[in-house]
Write a protein that binds this DNA or RNA. Sequence first.
DNA 1: TAGGCCATCTGGTCCT
DNA 2: AGGACCAGATGGCCTA
Length: 237
Amino acid sequence: MPAPLETTCLSDLDCASSSSDLPGFLTDEEDCARLPPPASASGSPAPARRGAPGNSGAPDVAGAQDNEQERRRRRGRARVRSEALLHSLRRSRRVKANDRERNRMHNLNAALDALRSVLPSFPDDTKLTKIETLRFAYNYIWALAETLRLADQGLPGGAARERLLPPQCTPCLPGPPSPTSDAESWGSGAAAASPLSDPSSPATSEDFAYGPGDPLFSFPGLPKDLLHTTPCFIPFH
DNA sequence: TAGGCCATCTGGTCCT
DNA sequence: AGGACCAGATGGCCTA
């Protein structure tokens, strides 16, 4: 049991400063409203009614009772003050933690914006959602890497297409391998299909994160022959 | 109006 | 101890 802190109630100070006006934020005012009012502010307790009518005890006994009551009142006030102080300290730490968390998410969003800015944009200028940005970036990087790999092999476009598109896979270029074997963590529906350990391996439409015509699967930066010969790569405007 | 997306708050856990 | 990270909860906004 910590000793009561002999300090003034910081909740008064906290209540005076509106530290946040964010939606859903529990304001300090609301917070403080929940607190038991500080003894000093709760309407001064009735003064000891020394000699008040109806006090029938003997004077010395009455004095002892008054002293005991006064001690109890002081202990109560100290306890309320210490609780309020602890509460305000927790509140202060929470507010700071909220602020850090907000900044952290802003940084994360800024990084996502930066990622969007280096990805091919769409004609209708629709902003990719977060999950779309991540999936598109993943597919885009995979497609670029695949292009580099084919270029290193010195394969012409037609041969490259043969390598990319096995005969049994005509409708679309296989999507990139899933980054994790846990399909559920990668997406839902077709995006959650079984991962391809080898992008050039035979694949079905279930293997594609995005199907033909899906703008998230068209990469304007790829070689023209690939763009023109691969149904999946829709020329970008 | 339901569903998707997002921002924010919050408490827990891990790390330095 | 304090900060970073994470996941759940909540409420607002927008669209089909």
